[in-house]
């Protein structure tokens, strides 16, 4: 059958010339990246988050005080050139502990959000696309996790997170965040499945797994990006909550949650103990929201902005 498509000579010549081949067709990833950085919100959010990461991870390297160090000459002093953010009642440097806390919170929050949204997308899309037993088993698991008291289980498991086992903590956090979204994703997949482009892909011979990853999940990206954005805040706040009660991140390690919890006691007469940690939490959530908005628009070709 090949050879039926015959092209006139001039077209052939055009093809073999280097200019003819150069039809720039950017991949989806590059298009999304271009549109993401083309928007104001995307640039601002990304810059903000990058600065925070840099400060959290590189800051302690150049700062004279470590987060476990205590300055016994300065208890609860306001910000000064020697202690940028002031000191705590124990003489610990606020800047040092805040950066250490931010390291934990950023990593835990972002990772837990990504993992839970990815889990929700995959479970929901597979359940909705394949139905039958896949659906029944996956939704049964989701229902089971929904009825389990997440806070209690995390609290019981907290001794496990003590010795630098924060990746386990991330996984556990994510495990209790995905269920509701996965149900929404499943419902949307059911309606998406009947759309003609999915049928077209099926009749073309594209494998079902590939259809889920190439057609179903990208078409739910608006929902997923919004969900991930919300999950970042949710994960950070859950971690904060757990740490407040003494579960989650264990001392001597700190997180923004433990800092806010401690600082709230002294906030009225020593605002620096509270406001730096709280402010950075707000800035983190804001940056993540900006990125989420820009990403949603970048993924959606019909969005009017950022074109």
């Amino acid at each position: 059958m090949s050879g039926h498509v015959t092209l006139p000579d001039e077209q052939l010549a055009e093809q073999s010339s280097p200019g003819g081949v150069g039809v720039a067709v950017p991949s989806r990833g590059r298009v999304v990246a271009r549109r993401f950085f083309g928007s104001w919100g995307g640039r601002a959010g990304f810059a903000l988050l990058a600065v925070m990461f840099l400060a959290a991870f590189a800051g302690p390297l150049v700062y004279p005080w470590g987060y476990t160090d205590k300055d016994f000459t300065a208890f609860l002093t306001p910000p000064s050139p020697s202690h940028w953010f002031g000191t705590l009642q124990t003489g610990a440097d606020v800047f040092a502990v805040t950066m250490r806390g931010m390291q934990k919170s950023l990593v835990v929050g972002l990772l837990a959000a990504l993992v839970s949204t990815a889990l929700a997308a995959i479970v929901g899309a597979f359940a909705g696309y394949f139905l039958g037993w896949t659906d029944r088993v996956l939704m049964w698991v989701a229902d089971l996790l929904l009825v389990l008291p997440a806070f209690l289980i995390l609290a019981v498991m907290s001794p496990l997170f003590a010795a630098g086992q924060w990746p386990l903590f991330v996984v556990m956090l994510a495990l209790f965040l995905w269920m509701v979204t996965s149900k929404v994703v499943r419902g949307m997949t059911l309606s998406l499945k009947e759309r003609e482009f999915i049928l077209a892909a099926r009749f073309m011979g594209v494998s079902p797994t590939r259809i889920v990853f190439r057609h179903v999940i990208p078409n739910l990206s608006s929902l997923l990006v919004v969900d991930a954005t919300l999950n970042v805040s949710a994960a950070i706040l859950t971690e904060t909550g757990l740490s407040y009660f003494g579960f989650g991140i264990q001392p001597p390690d700190v997180s923004l949650g433990t800092l806010i919890a401690d600082g709230s006691k002294t906030a009225t007469y020593a605002p620096w103990t509270f406001w730096f940690a709280a402010g950075l939490l707000i800035v983190t959530v804001l940056a993540v929201n900006l990125i989420g908005d820009a990403l949603r628009d970048a993924f959606d070709p019909s969005a009017r902005r950022a074109r």
Partner: peptide, 10 residues
């Protein structure tokens, strides 16, 4: 509806 709106023609 027969073309995936999230994909380029390519």
């Amino acid at each position: 509806s027969s073309l995936d709106p999230r994909m380029t023609v390519y």
